[in-house]
């Protein structure tokens, strides 16, 4: 007797979001990148179409960050020049997108001016042809001013701008509306707030296909399973037709992985843990791989070797397994 294999059929699919704009579309990117559109659980090609592969955005900052040495040495000589740093990520390391984090704007830190930060974004735009993700420093007041200026200066580029949060989404949403960018809606590992924030943003009339969810994640060993559950529930909601959970998902993999002690503690402190360089790469790559399985569409990453491993993993996962 032939075995009948049950397949789940989805009622709906994840929204597609297109990032970047070519000169014909009013921007200066060499190409656009489209994410989302999945009509099945992650990589269940046999249950529905998965039209777009997940992408990797490599992180560039406006000031030289305090990263562990094994990570910094991959960008030796370019970390003070965001443009060249970004270019290296694209040319040498195969980044699909560049993720510009304007940490230097932080009033508690380098406190760079809005003009300086805008200049950084422009420098990166000139240096690479891939679409950009730009986020602020995390200080609400400064970010409001900063991101409005970035949105205006990069009008037409169809950036992905962040972060909008439940108590702080209006000015960024308005800036994205006016200057036609996409928005990162970030919630604190909470699916109810995730959904509510998407509702609040869309109530300001930003179309659903210009929102990307950042659910907040934990890295391997630091709550990754909570992130997994929330992303899985988000995808199930999207597939069942819940429009307010149907946006593509972005994960701050590099940031989370590299702050785990396991990623950077020297082997001299933990002799049983093995070579620190390899350990850090694997910590980031394994975190990313788990997030792919949970339904990530954009991975924000740091180490080029982790990026290479993950891109190979994506290649394999995107091989059609329909039957």
């Amino acid at each position: 007797m032939p075995v009948q294999i049950l397949k789940e059929k989805s009622r709906a699919a994840v929204q597609t979001v297109t990032l970047g704009a070519t000169p014909e579309q009013g921007g200066t990117r060499s190409h656009t990148v489209t994410i989302g559109g999945d009509a099945a659980l992650p990589f269940h090609h046999f249950e529905g179409e998965i039209p777009h592969r997940p992408v990797v955005a490599m992180e560039v900052q406006d000031i030289e960050p305090e990263w562990p040495e094994p990570l910094k040495k991959c960008f030796a000589g370019v970390m003070k020049e965001p443009g060249r740093w970004a270019e290296k990520c694209v040319r040498e390391y195969g980044a699909d997108l560049i993720y510009v984090k304007l940490d230097g704007a932080d009033p508690e830190g380098a406190n760079r001016t809005v003009e300086q930060c805008v200049a950084t974004v422009k420098e990166v735009l000139q240096a690479v042809g891939v679409p950009l993700i730009v986020v602020g420093c995390g200080d609400n007041e400064k970010d409001k001013e900063l991101l409005e200026a970035v949105a205006e200066a990069a009008a037409g580029e169809n950036l992905l701008l962040g972060n909008a949060e439940q108590n702080n989404y209006q000015s960024l949403t308005a800036a994205c509306m006016v200057h036609k960018h996409n928005i990162i809606a970030r919630s604190p590992l909470d699916i109810n707030i995730c959904k509510q924030l998407n509702i609040l943003i869309s109530e300001m009339n930003l179309p659903l296909n210009r929102i990307v969810i950042d659910p907040s994640i934990g890295s391997l060993g630091y709550g990754i399973e909570y992130a997994y559950s929330i992303m899985e529930r988000t995808r199930l909601g999207a597939l069942q037709g819940d429009k307010m959970l149907s946006m593509p998902v972005l994960c701050t993999v590099g940031y989370e992985a590299w702050r785990a002690k396991e990623a950077y503690a020297p082997v001299t402190n933990f002799p049983g843990w093995g070579d620190v360089e390899e350990r850090g790469i694997l910590w980031e790559a394994v975190t990313a791989a788990a997030m792919l399985q949970a339904g990530a569409h954009v991975l924000l990453m740091r180490h080029p070797k982790a990026v290479a491993l993950v891109k190979e993993n994506i290649d394999r996962l995107m091989v059609n397994n329909a039957y």
Binding site: N192, Q196, I199, D242, M244, L245
Partner: peptide, 15 residues
């Protein structure tokens, strides 16, 4: 049957 959000009544009517 649906994920909770603060606007759940409104969303029920609007979907």
């Amino acid at each position: 049957q649906t994920v909770y959000c603060d606007s759940f009544v409104k969303m029920f009517k609007a979907r």
